[in-house]
Nucleic acid binder design. Structure first.
Lengths: 156, 156
DNA sequence: CGCAAAATCATCCATTCGGGTGACGCGCGA
DNA sequence: TCGCGCGTCACCCGAATGGATGATTTTGCG
């Protein structure tokens, strides 16, 4: 909600400026009021449309058609075997093996408590590992951490 | 669709009339140019924004023709073009377009508050959508929801 | 038009997360 | 042997999240 207000505020500012500008150029002409209004209206509706589109990008219409899929295609050269995390990136980020454990469990959608139970440690321990992970991954939430870890190739 | 066009047409007419009206009333006043222009600009930018949002909302227009799907494994989702969520599964789970929005934002690691800001709704709304999502995905946590959504091919 | 689904917003409450801090033990290498 | 990295655990506190409802508005469709 605050954002909308800000947008409108900025819009207002631009508007005033534009008005001042246009005003000086058209003030000479006599019957320019309609033209003036029309132009302003056009400009601003275009602007509005553009703004609306801009704000809600990636809103592509989903035209989906189900096609019978018989065989799964191994698209990329994804190895069929077990996933091996990118060791280079692991070292770059300074992520320890234990932290990787927590990361994987986290990506599986487990809560701290469940991770603790699975790894036979206390919930507090999981939390410290998690905190260090967030720090190293520059994440503030676990979903974000998972997302970045996936992007970095640390987890499948 | 035709209806909407008609509505827009009528709206345009009304606006023109309103413009004329306002014009005559303000023509007497001397320094009304800014006010007049401002009003017009405001109206039309608002209209434009609304229109833009409206137009880009035509998602889900074409729905699926159900085809028996035998095997369907979403392996290593290579970005071979824009991702299209599995509409069949979407319908099976009864997930609405808006909920999908929340799901995507959630997968991107955003907090409820951030999602609310991005989609221009209140945090409470995001929470209700999220709650319904958890219900439909049988998830208890957002990480779990994301994980299952990925597994179901709902998100990249 | 009128219904049903979807979307929006709200409130209350319990749980979970995340941040910060401090501490202890173990193994390894300088 | 000492320092250091790593793993472990604890406590506190504020913020975020999830659950349960209820309500209203918008929208799509017959």
């Amino acid at each position: 909600m605050k954002k909308t207000v800000l947008v409108y505020g900025a819009l207002g500012g631009v508007l005033i400026a534009a008005l001042k500008f246009v005003e000086y150029r058209f003030l000479i002409l006599e019957r320019s009021l309609e033209i003036y209004g029309g132009i302003v209206a056009l400009i601003f509706s275009a602007l509005g449309i553009w703004l609306g589109l801009k704000l809600t990008r990636t809103r592509q219409t989903v035209v989906v058609r189900e096609v019978p899929v018989l065989v799964e295609v191994q698209v990329g050269a994804r190895e069929a075997g077990p996933f091996t995390p990118n060791a280079t990136r692991l070292q770059q980020l300074g992520i320890t093996p234990r932290e990787l454990d927590i990361l994987e469990a986290m990506a599986a959608g487990l809560s701290n408590r469940e991770i603790a139970a699975q790894l036979f440690v206390s919930e507090n321990t999981v939390k410290t590992h998690a905190a260090r992970l967030f720090d190293k991954l520059s994440a503030r939430r676990r979903t974000q951490a998972v997302q970045r870890a996936k992007a970095a190739g640390l987890i499948p």
